[in-house]
Design a protein around this nucleic acid. Sequence first.
DNA 1: CAACAGGATGTTAACGTAAACATCTGTGGG
DNA 2: CCCACAGATGTTTACGTTAACATCCTGTTG
Lengths: 350, 350
Amino acid sequence: MVKPMTDTGRRRAGLRTRPGPSLADVAARAGVSAQTVSRVSMGTANVRAETRARVLAAMDELGYAPNSAARALRSGSYGTIGMIAHRLSRTGESRTVEAVVEAARAEGFTVTLVDVESPSSDDVSAAATRLSHQAIDGLVIIRAETATPATLVLPPRLPVVVSDSRFVGHHPAVGADQTAGGRAAVEHLLGLGHRTVHHLAGPEDSTPAQVRAEAWRDALEAAGRPVPDLLRGDWTADSGYALGREVARDPDVTAVFCANDEMAAGLMRALHEAGRDVPGDVSVVGFDDIVLAAHLWPPLTTVSQDFAEIGRALVDLLLRQVREGTSLADVHTLVPVRLVVRASTAPPAA
Amino acid sequence: MVKPMTDTGRRRAGLRTRPGPSLADVAARAGVSAQTVSRVSMGTANVRAETRARVLAAMDELGYAPNSAARALRSGSYGTIGMIAHRLSRTGESRTVEAVVEAARAEGFTVTLVDVESPSSDDVSAAATRLSHQAIDGLVIIRAETATPATLVLPPRLPVVVSDSRFVGHHPAVGADQTAGGRAAVEHLLGLGHRTVHHLAGPEDSTPAQVRAEAWRDALEAAGRPVPDLLRGDWTADSGYALGREVARDPDVTAVFCANDEMAAGLMRALHEAGRDVPGDVSVVGFDDIVLAAHLWPPLTTVSQDFAEIGRALVDLLLRQVREGTSLADVHTLVPVRLVVRASTAPPAA
DNA sequence: CAACAGGATGTTAACGTAAACATCTGTGGG
DNA sequence: CCCACAGATGTTTACGTTAACATCCTGTTG
């Protein structure tokens, strides 16, 4: 019986594969066995220098690239992390994505990205299932805002981390210390002499928005100050602008803590248009420290989150699970935040 | 000879695989052949409804998830696009990434992301090689700014698109019509009555920066206006601020076209600080239409790029190559831009 | 009633790789 | 001088899947 050839020409036509040369092709050209080529390809075992050179030359001539599917099938590891995000061009999201990609690269992993229409359990669950059909070793979920631990269904046996503290106890989580950030913002404004602080909040169904609002309320109550009605925004500068027009009409408002920088920008624009001075008439604090925060007018006092650290922590927590085969469901990493004081806050007018 | 078992227990220990049940396990449980399970899994061929139900039940009980490595090895397609980007939390980058992910999803593809330290040929080439070792069907390169067609080495046989018009003729490219955008910005300012327009440019080694600067120069020359010295920034708001302090001292400057919105924000801040009114004393135009552009003070007139369309075009061009096995090296898709006039531009003071 | 069509299902083989084991080569010590 | 040993290399096999082909069954039709 003829031994089946493995040369490049004989590939089946129907496959829309990209039919590069295989180990066997390189082996034939270099006059060695496929296993030796594999060893050179992985850079592992003992191969004579001259043999290695011959194999490398053959690889080069044939334009050999290892077939990752076969390699993964054989080795059981893909070198890839899956990541689910929602509206990933937003500041926090894109910076977290960047940080995770960066941290993953440092560990030799690449990142496969999926964005979901909505941060609901259904959409996130579906995305997770879809990703688990791809080649991934683990899964990072960025801010599954409206999903809950009870309704979020994840593929079995797949290591997961979530950047949402609500999932503590269900999945390992990493998050910025939003509570400390909110408290710091409020205390900074009270420390300047403001009687109380208003809050421009994010959407009701968002966990970070809830946490920041709670921190605001707690800090006011702890200081024995009156707690004004909360202003409900939706993260966008537009909503900040709309609510800012109301704020501008209310002379009682001297200090506003905004749940993110974009709403703060909208708010400040509304104040400018109404002829109210920032920080002369109204002090404004944001949250996120977006790139432009320092160059808004006036430069915005805000709470800075260390996205790089969050990314590293997410990847670290995930890869520990991937490598050890364990689950770290009860681990919760809290990354500190930092209040950056700029020119948008000042003592209230006498 | 005993037929080798394929049950879940007998897996080798050394492999850090995630040893889910296989087709064979499901088949055994459902009392059918592996092939039938495969058919159900793919949803393709004719399977009796009752059999299908039994197989689905077995899958469910065992928590079966298809092994994508094996599937890809067999079928030759991964359902994944590779993407290389630089500093991907920047506005243009993150919005392009989002658009590509979105467009890819619509085609049933996921996206594997790699960011590079620098947009140089070396780094991009290395990233491409690294990605080609991963499971990808094609490659999208976002703004390989300092790389050149001559020095950029890509894996053979891998379909590629580049969002950089310099690569036309070498690789299929998609880009916004930056020239038209720059021209529109300058003509808008001249149309308001300004004698000439200054330009705050991006870094020298960036193609988009070059193209925008060229468009600025051409538009001025076409109108027979003097061409002032170009102000060289680096995309950051900080550089815009630094150059803005000089601009603020020069009463001849009445109109500035900035190569991106962030530099425009820095510039406007410097003008505010110097007591120069925008647009009363100086008109400012940006480029990109970032989310905050409408809420800067004053709201920024800028050139809006259709990132969603760019993403769609990139994915379309790439998948056509993946599916047809052809290269479309000479295709160049130019996506139109749109000038958005807001409050940062006005006729010059009398 | 027999042959047949056509759908449902099973069997075989191969995708490219890497682990495990087998074999070969040269070297040094007894 | 021979054998033990170690390093280099080859051979075999299995990873989980799907294409191709083979087979089986059911109902229909001449």
